[in-house]
């Protein structure tokens, strides 16, 4: 099957494996993490046609033909995506295992709703868990990225 990831097309033998397994094991896109395996923690979040999806809950087969964006697709060089920049500036992480998932969910949120309220941010990010408890700074980072008002879709 053909998997379209970060603008490139890959021929993969996915079998019955999940999207996160194929991304990590076959394509070496290891920025995406598997945290819980049941779609609760959001560490494996990728954007599929712009919508956040838990990579542990879908088989790679199911997203054939769709456009997949992982954390590696946000910045091809030294520069950072504005949402990554906001997370860096606000110190919105500690161990950072959850960070790629949060960054991608935030991008989807800001594409849907460029100026979300605190409550809307909390609602949208509720499926991403940060065990270190950096949520205050994550909230600030989302607001700061929102305030930059740039077009977030890559």
């Amino acid at each position: 099957m053909i998997l379209s990831v970060n603008g490139s097309r890959y021929e993969v033998q996915a079998g019955t494996r999940t999207l996160v397994e194929v991304l990590r094991d076959d394509l070496n896109l290891v920025g995406t993490k598997e945290g819980c395996g049941v779609g609760m923690c959001g560490a494996c979040t990728v954007l599929v046609d712009g919508k956040p999806l838990s990579g542990c809950l879908v088989l790679a087969e199911q997203v054939a033909g769709k456009e997949i964006l992982t954390i590696e697709g946000l910045s091809q060089d030294e520069s950072l995506h504005p949402v990554q920049q906001a997370f860096l500036e606000q110190g919105a992480f500690q161990c950072a295992y959850c960070t790629p998932g949060f960054v991608l969910t935030t991008i989807a949120l800001l594409n849907e709703k460029p100026s979300p309220s605190d409550e809307e941010i909390r609602e949208y990010l509720a499926g991403n868990l940060c065990r270190c408890g950096s949520y205050q700074n994550i909230l600030q980072a989302v607001k700061s990225a929102s305030a930059t008002g740039v077009k977030h879709h890559t």
């Binding site: 950072l80 860096l88 110190g91």
Partner: peptide, 21 residues
């Protein structure tokens, strides 16, 4: 000083070399 973590860029890019990798 509130300097960012040394490897902040790697952290927001998902490039930290955790052992799972």
């Amino acid at each position: 000083r509130s300097v960012p973590m040394l490897d902040s860029v790697a952290r927001v890019k998902g490039e930290v070399d955790y052992l799972v990798n």
